[in-house]
Nucleic acid binder design. Sequence first.
RNA 1: AGGCCCUUAGCUCAGUCGGUAGAGCAGCUGACUCUUAAUCAGCGGGUCCGGGGUUCGAGUCCCCGAGGGCCUACCA
Length: 495
Amino acid sequence: MEQESLANDEAALNELLRMRRQKLASLKAKGVDPYGHRFEQTALAKEIREEFDAFAGKTVRVAGRLLAKRTHGKATFADLQDRSGQIQLYVRYDRVGEESYDLFKLLDIGDIVGVEGTVFRTRQGEITVEAATVELLCKSLRPLPEKWHGLRDVELRYRQRYLDLIMNSQVRETFYRRTGIIRALRAFLDARGFLEVETPVMAPVAAGAAARPFVTHHHALDLDLYLRIALELPLKRLLVGGLERVYELGRVFRNEGISTRHNPEFTMLEAYQAYADYEDMMRLTEEMLVSVAEEVVGCRQIRYRGQEIDLSPPWPRLGVLEALRRFAGLPWEQLPEREEAWQKARELGITLEQGASTGKIIDALLQALVEPHLQQPTFLVDYPVEVSPLAKRKTDAPDLVYRFELFIAGRELVNAFSELNDPLDQRERFLAQARARAGGDEEAQMFDHDFLEALEYGMPPAGGMGLGVDRLVMLLTDAPSIRDVILFPTLRPLG
RNA sequence: AGGCCCUUAGCUCAGUCGGUAGAGCAGCUGACUCUUAAUCAGCGGGUCCGGGGUUCGAGUCCCCGAGGGCCUACCA
């Protein structure tokens, strides 16, 4: 059965694939190991080009993938790509000898080679390694995409990201920068005494955010577990435990739609600081994002989708109700009655679920009327308590909470608040969420009894913040889609 | 989940009014020892996403399905 399908595959191979297998066979026949071994790289393409004066005339050992070949009878030029970039190779018959030269002619674009040679500059001015020896490190059995246009097909780019990375240098740069951003976030928090921790990805309760979770099952325990939708509650247990400043950078999972701004699994950063409040978190957020931008972009002004965005702090703080007055002409000085809010939303043609609370209506109004206007960094502050079940109530307006969301380029990037540390109030909030859940709101938070017990031991007042890391990467790499900043975005499997 | 659009050679793309399936790159053969989108001569390469229908005849028109993109909705 296995044999048969393999034979069929062989028969179905097209000409290009057959040719490569023939070359593989003739290499083996010549006694060449087509899958190579250790090769010590002593130089990278980029450093040879940037520091040519230091390398000129010296012997280097470079390794990488062949991306182009230009054969001129008894001499051949080729382009080699390693992790740093590309460099030209020059292979001459009278330098490497007949055997090696014939071998080199057998190599295909896409093969991985190691070359020892001397660095020089051609008459045309191209910095080049003239090979003394060429070693095959891996024979490639499939042709690479086209050299001018690279790999354009968006689906193939996501499904075969390795080809995207080989062919499209700006894609490599994006992912290098992604790592730079994450490193800068860590460095910033580490320098302020935050402890990086790891908490469970699987948990019996999915809480800490309003979202539908993925469910899985543990066989030995015969227990349904949820993939986490947020990092919040385990981290706050650590505040109870006295760690005072903690953060986690990790994957969370939400069983919801896919779009240019949403992938089912994405990376969040959450940080909690004891004895701080949400105003401290605003300053922390400003300093953190400026520091990251300066680290990876080199300045505070960035361009996103053709638009200039200035990250210089301080960023405006705009009350939720004030924002509705300013951008939507809604007159409210304080949280309106539900009926009034409902009426206004209907007039404005905003779609709402039947049982939406005042808070949800306000949230919907903000999304439709305010958020698209917030292109420059803006903190929207003081949200309704109903949509913020883990945030502390404002002392002078208990139907609002000390909470902000940061918007840049019309998108929510950060959600943060003064953490609710009153266990009795927290219990009431969980109960309200449970009622909403019972009423059919699948995104209402689950009741986390264990967390409540922790709160009863006492959690210091604290500020906490959560940052959508992928969206920050989009902003700092000018990426139009979240899939452009996730190496392997979620796709339907083929056939 | 709903709407609009896309799917043709390994890759990037043409394909007129329904009438024998095209180009460039890549590949193969030959020439060529400083080219760089190397050049020159020649050759091969197709499940036109899948299934059904209309038609003398379908890459092209119609229906169903698959995958993808964008927008809307939910969320970060």
